[in-house]
Design a protein around this nucleic acid. Structure first.
Lengths: 188, 188
DNA sequence: GAAAGACTAGACCGATCGGTCTAACAATGC
DNA sequence: GCATTGTTAGACCGATCGGTCTAGTCTTTC
């Protein structure tokens, strides 16, 4: 018996994939429904506010996935740099596996969408969750709370910038270059 | 006599503004035309491929504007860090003047649009122009060519990441924090 | 002044858009 | 078996979408 995802999850995952490729406004509900194999009535049942609800769920889900990669990368890391490096290598691998033209739905939410403030708040929450997850590992590795928070922010800022440039150039090596950019910066 | 912009420029600037706020797919031609005060026939005259042409022109124009800020920031800078710092302060000021929810159209192009590869190529070109402009100042300040290129990439990667987080949090201070993140990184 | 090219103007078009809504089916509890 | 709740199903709707196209005006050249 094939493991079948609940309807709601099928919608979220289909939406995540399509929002990644086309952005929020560039993705029509019909495409999502077709990919998820779900009728329209079900969409509004599970997400009463429709497309916007779905987008926020997609961002939450994506943040959770990224946090999972952070967990896998930092759990056994001997130091911060090692954790960051492992994360970048894992994400670079994902980048190669997925179509490299795909964006992250969290970023996409920032740039578009009718309900501007809602999306910005959702993006903020998603970023904050990711940064907090990384900061916890910073602390576990011996950093003071403020230092860990700063390090985590810088890491995620840099990662996000690298992801964007990597997508532009279609080169996952840019993701792998993040640790040396942050921790082996050129001297003045 | 009021200085009146040529039609083409009016279209580009209106598009730049609206793409920034709403993204490519979230912005309709009617809105652009209304804001620019230009009829539809003119749009297709100046931009035969329509909306996509206009988006690419908007990205080019935006890159030129960013390069202008780089020029203003680095022209009299005594060292690299000083140039980066000035740039960040100028952009933070712009961030406060403009609606902070606005994105940069270059980023927007990456996440959406029907003609995917064209937009990616355009974004690549725009980013490369910006990075090259910064790298030239790195060299003028005494860096070896490779080092200057790396420093410029890291700077733009970091800036772009900071811009995104600043937008999420509606705090221009994140932009101002970039130099200390890059050049005063926490030690391991 | 006429011709050609550049540019403006806006009606029209088929397609897609996201949301609404009614009907039907499935699951659970009594 | 019936009632209630949860969930699926898809037709329908008005609005918006970007592009096409014809007609008109303006500018330049001969």
């Amino acid at each position: 018996m094939t493991e079948e995802l609940p309807t709601r999850d099928r919608l979220i995952q289909a939406a995540t994939r399509l929002f990644r490729q086309r952005g929020y406004d560039g993705t029509g509900l019909t495409e999502i429904l077709t990919e998820a194999g779900v009728p329209k009535g079900s969409l509004y049942h599970h997400f009463p506010d429709g497309k916007a609800d779905l987008a926020c769920a997609a961002a939450d889900w994506t943040a959770s996935e990224i946090i999972r990669v952070i967990d896998d990368s930092f759990r056994t890391a001997p130091d911060w740099r090692h954790g960051v490096t492992t994360f970048c290598y894992k994400m670079a691998k994902l980048f190669d596996i997925l179509d490299s033209a795909d964006a992250c739905p969290i970023f996409g939410l920032l740039f578009e969408g009718p309900d501007h403030d809602r999306f910005r708040t959702q993006a903020e929450r998603s970023f904050d969750r990711i940064i907090a997850a990384a900061a916890r590992y910073g602390q576990a590795l011996g950093m003071a709370p403020d230092t860990a928070q700063d390090a985590a922010e810088t890491f995620i800022i840099g990662f996000q910038g690298c992801w964007t440039l990597a997508r532009t150039r279609r080169k996952s090596d840019i993701l792998r270059s993040l640790p040396s950019r942050l921790y082996g910066a050129p001297s003045q």
